[in-house]
Design a binder for these strands. Structure first.
Length: 197
DNA sequence: ATCTAGATGACCT
DNA sequence: GGTCATCTAGATG
């Protein structure tokens, strides 16, 4: 049997360029620990944002207080606030000094249904964590998780080993919500999804 | 099922 | 002051 769950991904996992890490994160397990309780989900959708030259990346205008963690070592959480009310989670990738990150866009809930339902009251189960801000709401991810080391067993926010996916089950397409970006960035196939059953 | 508008505040020009 | 790596309710066919 494949050794999945409870094994934290090593920091080296995040050392590759963002598009490769985005692909490899599919099937891995996002874990949030709240008062000793595990809330977890299988990562099923990601997007890569890759460096200052990527005109859709938050680092396109250089280093700021907001994106500073992207310039640090890989494996940390870049959590940002947008549209006046939403938080979104990224995993920092690439070598230190190279501002790259992978946006976690959707997960499939596995553990912590009590906490998830409490945080997503009145929402249909299929819509609990099927968007980047929705999953942060469900998993209680906000400013407090900025910079969290996700490649550490003791972190309140981490990613554990899951079942890797074969290429046949991966859908690649352009990123969403970046209409402002010029070519070639708007067309880069840097959105990765697990093909539905 | 698909579309549109409004929310709401940090960020950048 | 305009924009934004989004979400939700409500309208419409």
């Amino acid at each position: 049997m494949y050794n999945s769950g409870m094994v934290c991904l090593p920091c080296d996992f995040y050392l590759l360029p963002a598009p490769e890490v985005a692909r490899n994160l599919l099937g891995m397990i996002l874990v949030r620990e709240i008062n000793g309780q595990r809330v977890s989900g299988r990562i099923i959708e990601t997007e890569a944002y890759s460096g200052e030259e990527d005109q859709a990346c938050h680092a396109r205008s250089g280093r700021t207080d907001r994106n500073a963690v992207m310039y640090g070592p890989p494996g940390r959480a870049y959590v940002y606030f947008t549209y006046g009310m939403h938080w979104c989670l990224n995993a920092v990738t690439g070598a230190e000094g190279s501002p790259e990150a992978v946006l976690i866009r959707a997960v499939q809930p596995l553990e912590g249904f009590g906490i998830i339902t409490r945080n997503r009251q009145g929402v249909a189960e299929k819509n609990w964590t099927d968007g980047p801000a929705k999953l942060c709401r469900a998993f209680e991810i906000d400013r407090a998780m900025y910079g969290a080391v996700m490649c550490s067993e003791t972190s309140p926010l981490r990613i554990e080993q899951g079942e890797p996916l074969p290429d046949a089950q991966v859908i690649r397409s352009p990123r969403v919500g970046i209409q402002y970006a010029p070519e070639p960035w708007i067309s880069k196939p840097w959105r990765f999804r697990v093909k539905p059953d």
